[in-house]
Design a protein around this nucleic acid. Structure first.
Length: 345
DNA sequence: GGAAGGATGGCGATATCAAC
DNA sequence: GTTGATATCGCCATCCTTCC
């Protein structure tokens, strides 16, 4: 109701968020992936408005669009809103501002965030990246600044000090202490003029990670030497591979002998793309007809050896009905004497 | 004194989404 | 139907406390 102090405060806060010029924004934005629909007008644009959604400025579209579902994350919505509020909304009054966020570090180098990096480089004059988790995903407990957070984290400070056409000059430093306390000590010692700062690559889409020292960048990339790559198989069920092939045959017999349909579905481990009754095209080169698991007999397709992991050779059931992603190109190029190189990601 | 069960951390696996 | 990346998910060994 009117007059309620909480309501009044909320109105004032909304007014500041909507109308007031904000020069400095400091925050630890919430993080949640798959947050489509929770970004309000930042994500979807205003209803009936003719302007595109703010988030579109973080998108490259085209071939990169397949990676850009990663932008549907609460922390990205907050980044985009903060950048609008500080750098864009009141540009005619003042062209200066600072956004300083601690958030997950995915935007530093993820391919889906190339458009976000381009925006920040083009909008800002300078940037500082403090990588809090150079260990990568799931750092050891003792080095985590927040114990419950398995994701890599980073502090990013971006400054716009006026209109210019130069890309932002960005520096990078990592806190690589082996304990939380060491990291805090490194952080305390870090200042704007410290000599730990390393320059970040200059091009608009490049990761916010340091440029290579020495000759590394002059070496040929893996894709230059081996231009043909395909993803490996992703069965989405663990029973289809095993270190020995007899285990696979007995599992197959157990599954095909099951007459209770609910039990059969459970044993099969159904997913969105593979169910016991779905008709599935055969693997390339197998010459079988399109059929479902319900028609399968007790005879297991002859297991074939495959590279489960580097240096870990196992056996797999070569049947597309049990493989969510069989990687058809891989099967098409399966031939006697063919050599495959496994690239770890 | 030993069984039971919760809490924790290590480790590898997998569900999920939209674009294509 | 296929694809890439992830403040996840799930299993399991270990440690610790509680209970009988």
């Amino acid at each position: 109701p009117d007059g309620d102090p909480l309501v009044e405060n909320t109105r004032k806060a909304d007014w500041i968020k909507r109308e007031q010029k904000v020069t400095v924004m400091i925050s630890n934005p919430p993080d949640r992936e798959r947050a489509e629909g929770e970004g309000g007008w930042v994500e979807k644009g205003r209803e009936g408005g003719d302007k595109a959604a703010l988030l579109d400025d973080f998108r490259l579209g085209g071939r990169n669009a397949t990676n850009e579902n990663k932008l549907k994350n609460l922390y990205v919505y907050f980044w985009r809103w903060a950048a609008f509020k500080v750098f864009e909304q009141h540009r005619s009054e003042s062209d200066r501002g600072i956004v300083a966020f601690i958030s997950t570090a995915g935007f530093l180098s993820g391919p889906g965030f190339q458009g976000m990096r381009k925006y920040l480089r083009e909008t800002c004059s300078e940037g500082w990246i403090i990588d809090l988790s150079p260990e990568g995903i799931q750092p050891p407990m003792r080095t985590r600044l927040f114990e419950g957070v398995q994701q890599p984290l980073a502090i990013a400070v971006f400054v716009r000090s006026g209109a210019d056409n130069e890309l932002a000059r960005i520096r990078y430093a990592a806190l690589d202490g082996s304990t939380r306390e060491e990291k805090y000590a490194q952080f305390e010692a870090l200042g704007p003029d410290s000599d730990q700062w390393r320059s970040v690559r200059q091009s608009a889409h490049a990761p916010f990670t340091p440029a290579a020292q020495g000759a590394w960048d002059t070496y040929p990339a893996m894709n230059d030497l081996l231009p043909w790559t395909v993803p490996g198989m992703l069965p989405k069920r663990t029973w289809v591979y095993s270190p020995d092939s007899d285990t696979l045959r007995s599992r197959w017999r157990r599954l095909t002998a099951e007459t209770d349909i609910a039990e059969k579905r459970a044993l099969f481990r159904e997913t969105q793309s593979r169910t016991v009754d779905r008709q599935v095209n055969p693997l390339p080169g197998s010459g079988q007809r399109r059929r479902s698991m319900l028609e399968a007999g007790s005879e297991c397709p002859e297991p074939v050896p495959f590279a489960f992991r580097p240096f870990d050779r196992q056996w797999i059931i070569p049947d597309n009905r049990v493989l969510d992603r069989c990687s058809p190109q891989l099967w098409e190029n399966r031939a006697e004497g063919q050599i495959h190189i496994v690239e770890q990601h």
